[in-house]
Nucleic acid binder design. Structure first.
Length: 652
DNA sequence: GTAGGGTTAG
């Protein structure tokens, strides 16, 4: 079918003045139009416009575009619908054709359509074309300014977005509530200082009363980790709704304050019956349950999800899979996963990593194979990070290597530093340190802190001081304020009884104003969460817990147990060292679980750091001696203790 | 005519 001829309604000069925006999609060539319009044709025009609009609404952009070329007077509404259709169909070439035709029809200065075009290009990820539309506009309404600032913030061009905000002010256009929300989003990229500036600015203009603006501000502070700023705003909000509650709950859940996230959720439920939590609230609350391994709370939330009919929402189901996995309840995680009608890449990744952290690498790989066979969803970078982690936890060296080296040829996914870190971890844990360092030396990208961190972790397991020092030099450069790296190196020296070096690292830590993160464990008993720190003198039951642990210790020693105190960073008497390891938070939590639960009940504990070797062997013993299943989730993975054996096979 | 909060890894 040949294209009908059209003549441009605007002068050719204007068309030629269009520079080609950096992408090749937008061509400045004017499109041909009919030179004369007969009255009979005009009669058909209104129905033509109507037809184009109908086709656009149905997403039939190509057909609509074809008809557009025969239409001498397309209306603003026709173009609006065409633009929406291009956004929906994700077609940049159609978008450029619509844009070109719109300019040809003399609508290039229509501010309404300019706003829509900017939105469309932003959605299609073509910020250069959005910038072109904006630059071409002579009279910019606030809608045009806002659309462009929003487009820039969405594209991660924070500084440019804030620059445009300045130009907007300078040209005498005042920020409105929309400008503030977009400018605040731009600050997520541009930094805390800018965010605080905008905050000051909006206070002077009285926008602290706008629920959208303040909610955005809470979220921005959450993303900077400034929980107290977010909390203050939330507390002082004149009006709250489900979105502001969810933003604050999410802020706490993501910033290491899951306990408070749950408290706030219950405050919302109990104190504010008008605010009904929705799927987004559920996702954040489930994240908090997962962080705490709070299975009881998680089950309550699951019931709520079912009652409210939120169980068909993919993100909610994904969060349920993660929550059950992180509570060590893989059977239910798998059941939720199997019952899902729709699964996205996050669903598959959640199930794969669930099996992985629980030490079931074979199952994780099976799920990955199912994903490939299913064919509806392609794996992404995170899929492989999860798979490599699974292999590492289970010691599947060859399978891990095979997966790593299949990434590019089979799935076109290029390994990032995190993937290399996964491979280094697999090799390092297995004691293949030379091979691990070879991988680092041959990396095509600059090794990041995760890579050196994996190597240092492996050196800790295999007591390799030389390589540990090499990794530390790089780590201290890359992450000067990460106390964990200094502690790890000090522990390696302590194990080798190199006390001069231990003290040197401790002084370095002190000089940089850093502190060792203290160990903390917690346990959920009858829906309540109890937390313990090492040598927890303030705990009301401490004497009872200590007595029980001493009793175990005596019995264990009779069976040949020798406390492992090698990682203690102080040169103390062996008796004093034993006292310290016996007071580790994880042991206190186990003792508390034994005293406060009935026989046969599984004890579930979570720890903020890696489980120490002594706690590991003591927990194995206790599981046998008391005939209890003990589940400990440390910062890296799960340990299922049963009959004196741990699921990690002492490989962690 | 434009708006705010969410899931996987590390």
């Amino acid at each position: 079918m040949s294209e009908p001829k059209r003549t441009s309604h605007v002068g050719s000069q204007q068309c030629h003045s269009l520079p080609s925006p950096s992408s090749h999609h937008f061509s400045p060539t004017p499109s041909p139009k009919p030179s004369s319009i007969t009255s009979s044709l005009q009669a058909r025009n209104s129905s033509n416009n109507h037809l184009i609009q109908t086709l656009s609404k149905q997403g039939l952009t190509k057909h609509a575009l074809h008809l557009l070329s025969t239409e001498p007077r397309p209306t603003q509404r026709t173009y609006e619908l065409l633009i929406l259709s291009c956004s929906r169909n994700n077609s940049l070439s159609d978008a450029a054709a619509v844009h070109r035709s719109l300019v040809d029809d003399g609508l290039g200065q229509d501010s309404f359509l300019a706003t829509k075009l900017i939105d469309m290009y932003a959605q299609l990820g073509s910020i250069d074309n959005a910038r072109y539309v904006f630059d071409e506009m002579r009279d910019r309404t606030i809608f045009v300014w806002n659309a462009f600032i929003r487009a820039l913030a969405l594209a991660g061009c924070g500084d440019e977005a804030l620059g445009v905000c300045c130009r907007m002010s300078e040209s005498g256009v005042w920020f409105d509530r929309f400008t503030y929300t977009y400018a605040l989003k731009a600050c997520v990229v541009s930094g805390e200082r800018k965010g605080k500036e905008i905050h000051g600015n909006l206070l002077r203009r009285g926008f602290e009363w706008n629920v959208h603006v303040v909610t955005t501000l809470i979220d921005v502070y959450a993303k900077f980790g400034l929980v107290s700023y977010a909390g203050k705003l939330f507390d002082e909000m004149p009006e709250r709704n489900v979105v502001s509650w969810s933003a604050m709950i999410g802020c706490l859940a993501k910033n290491g304050r899951p306990f408070e996230a749950l408290e706030l959720f219950w405050e919302m439920m109990v104190g504010n019956p008008d605010e009904v939590p929705n799927s987004v609230t559920m996702v954040s609350v489930l994240q908090a349950c997962a962080a705490l391994s709070a299975l009881g709370q998680g089950k309550l939330i699951h019931c709520f999800v079912l009652r409210r009919g939120l169980d068909s929402i993919v993100s909610v189901n994904n969060s349920l899979v993660t929550m059950y996995s992180k509570c060590g309840n893989l059977e239910v995680a798998r059941r939720v996963f199997d019952r899902m009608d729709k699964r996205d890449v996050v669903s598959w990744n959640s199930m794969i990593s669930g099996f992985g952290v629980n030490g079931f690498a074979e199952e994780a790989i099976l799920v990955f194979k199912e994903m490939i066979n299913d064919g509806k969803v392609s794996p992404n970078a995170i899929t492989f990070i999860s798979l490599l982690g699974a292999c590492s936890h289970s010691g599947l060296v060859d399978e891990g290597k095979r997966l790593f080296y299949s990434m590019v040829p089979e799935y076109h996914i290029y390994p990032t530093s995190e993937h290399y870190a996964g491979l280094v971890d697999i090799l390092g844990r297995a004691g293949r340190l030379e091979e691990a360092i070879k991988v680092i030396e041959d990396m095509r990208i600059e090794p990041g802190s995760t890579v050196w961190g994996s190597l240092l972790g492996a050196c800790r397991i295999h007591c390799n001081i030389e390589l540990a020092e090499r990794a530390s030099v790089r780590l201290f450069e890359l992450e000067p304020t990460n106390a964990g790296n200094y502690v790890l190196l000090a522990e390696i020296y302590a194990e080798a009884k190199m006390w001069v070096e231990v003290n040197r690292v401790k002084k370095l830590l002190e000089a940089r104003g850093l502190q060792k993160v203290s160990g903390c464990s917690w346990i959920e008993v009858k829906g309540k969460i109890y937390s313990f720190v090492s040598v927890d003198e303030l705990n009301p039951q401490i004497e009872q817990l200590h007595a029980l642990l001493v009793k175990f210790s005596v019995e264990m020693k009779e069976k040949g147990y020798v406390p492992d105190t090698k990682a203690i960073l102080y040169e103390l008497d062996e008796v004093e060292k034993e006292e310290i390891v016996l007071g580790h938070s994880e042991k206190l939590a186990v003792a508390f679980g034994l005293i406060n639960s009935s026989a046969g009940e599984t004890i579930r504990i979570t720890k903020n750091l890696r489980l120490c070797r002594d706690c590991h062997s003591v927990t194995k013993f206790i599981s046998q001696f008391t005939n209890r299943d003990i589940l400990v989730r440390d910062v890296n993975r799960f340990h299922h203790f049963r009959n004196g054996v741990c699921s990690c096979g002492d490989y962690w």
